[in-house]
């Protein structure tokens, strides 16, 4: 579960002071799928970075799974990110001149997963995104959709509890994008991974449990809906808030 309490993020000083986020408070229950929606420059990515501990708020609290990220040392935040969460980006950020295997291996190396289990985990992750047959292909030779699937395999290989996706379909055509989105929701459903998607695609946003609308660095409204096919038994406890 992620709890964001009165988070403010400012850039610069004096004349050039810019407030990217202002007193943002929200809560994301474990296992939920969440969309952060807003225009370009509204602070979506900034909020996501703060939730994941990549960035620190200028003011306020971020509590993830009961731990306050603000109080942790950088080293501890790194360890936390390495073991609990993962990322998918609009521009994939895969290493084109390495094989799919090597790309997916990275989080396991960072988390110091034992050498013996590595191959098993990598193959399993690649199977989940249907890229098993590309295990030894160079990542650079994959199509756009395949690249993003590879990025998803890399994101899930370490069994994270939280998955942040910043405009995961931004660089893909709608058909390919739909496949990626379906894959993400499947992971959310089947592996109980809390999914946070940053997007300005309203149609995509409709599919999530919670939609957080951002405008000029402030939460405009939060829409929560009851999921039809929800399998999680604690879904009823979910807080429904309207702003």
């Amino acid at each position: 579960m992620i709890k964001v309490i009165d988070v403010t993020k400012t850039y610069g000083k004096g004349e050039s002071l810019f407030t990217a986020l202002y007193k943002v408070s929200t809560e994301i229950p474990a296992g939920a799928s969440v969309a952060i929606i807003g225009k370009s420059g509204s602070g979506k990515s900034t909020l996501m970075h703060i939730m994941s501990g990549l960035d620190r708020p200028s003011d306020g609290e971020v509590i993830v799974n009961g731990k306050s990220l603000v109080g942790l040392k950088p080293k501890q935040v790194d360890a936390f990110r390495s073991s609990e969460m993962s990322f998918i980006f609009q521009a994939f950020f895969i290493e084109a001149n390495q094989t799919c295997y090597q790309n997916v291996l990275l989080p396991l190396e960072i988390a110091k997963v034992g050498r013996r289990d590595r191959r098993k985990h990598v193959l399993e992750a690649l199977r989940a995104v249907d890229l098993e047959d590309k295990v030894d292909s160079l990542a650079g030779n994959l199509s756009g959709g395949q690249k993003q699937r590879l990025a998803i395999a890399r994101a899930i290989v370490n069994n994270p509890k939280l998955l942040f996706a910043d405009e995961p379909t931004g660089n893909l055509d709608s058909a390919t994008g739909d496949i990626i989105i379906d894959l993400l929701f499947k992971l959310n459903r089947e592996r109980k991974i809390t999914l946070v998607i940053v997007t300005h695609d309203l149609e995509l946003a409709q599919k999530t449990d919670i939609q957080i609308y951002l405008k000029d660095g402030e939460i405009e409204k939060t829409v929560a809906k009851k999921r039809q096919h929800r399998t999680s038994p604690n879904s009823s406890k979910k807080v429904v808030r309207m702003v």
Binding site: D78, F80, R81, S82, F87, F93, L106, P107, I110
Partner: peptide, 16 residues
């Protein structure tokens, strides 16, 4: 730069 950013996002430590 990007690769470094990604590694850091995935929790790789400064020292490493």
């Amino acid at each position: 730069t990007r690769e470094i950013g990604l590694m850091k996002a995935l929790g790789m430590r400064k020292r490493d």
